[in-house]
Simulated scan of single mutants.
Amino acid sequence: MDSTTMIAIVSIFTAGITTGVGCLGPAFGEGRAVSSALASLAQQPDAAATITRTLFVGLAMIESTAIYCFVVSMILIFANPFWGHVTAVAAAGGQ
């Protein structure tokens, strides 16, 4: 197996792991945040506007983590920074 194939395999595997773990954590975090917000709304319905606004800001911050992981995985698949190095080494005869 040549080094270009190995880089491709490792990049695809890493992109899958990055997306899987990077989306699993925020999903649990968002579920816990919504659960806490609903419990707070049940206890203090008059503070619904403040709780809801804070909830949406928090959800946006949590979701940004999943988006960053998705961007990293897309870079690894489509714009891999290691391709140039591997092709240069392969062109030089593997030195």
Rank of each mutant, 00 (worst) to 15 (best):
D2G: 05
D2M: 01
M6N: 06
M6C: 09
M6T: 07
I7K: 07
I7T: 11
S11N: 02
S11V: 01
I12H: 11
F13S: 06
F13L: 09
A15G: 11
A15Q: 03
A15S: 01
A15C: 10
T19H: 01
G20D: 11
V21A: 07
C23S: 08
C23K: 05
G25Y: 07
P26W: 00
A27I: 03
A27M: 00
F28R: 01
E30A: 00
G31A: 02
R32G: 02
A33G: 03
A33T: 01
V34K: 04
L38C: 05
A39R: 00
A39L: 03
S40F: 04
S40A: 09
S40W: 01
L41Y: 07
A42H: 13
Q43G: 06
Q43S: 14
P45D: 04
A47Y: 10
A49D: 15
T50C: 04
T50Q: 13
I51A: 07
I51L: 02
I51K: 04
T52G: 01
R53C: 06
R53T: 15
T54C: 02
T54H: 00
T54S: 12
L55F: 00
L55R: 01
F56T: 12
V57E: 05
V57K: 09
L59I: 07
A60L: 12
I62D: 04
E63D: 08
S64D: 11
S64L: 12
T65P: 00
A66I: 12
Y68R: 12
Y68M: 12
Y68N: 10
C69L: 07
C69Y: 03
C69H: 10
F70N: 14
V71N: 05
S73P: 09
I75M: 08
I75S: 04
I77A: 09
I77V: 15
A79C: 10
A79I: 13
N80I: 11
P81Q: 14
F82G: 09
F82Y: 08
W83H: 13
W83F: 12
W83P: 04
G84C: 07
H85M: 10
T87N: 15
V89S: 11
V89K: 13
A91T: 14
A92N: 09
A92R: 10
G94V: 07
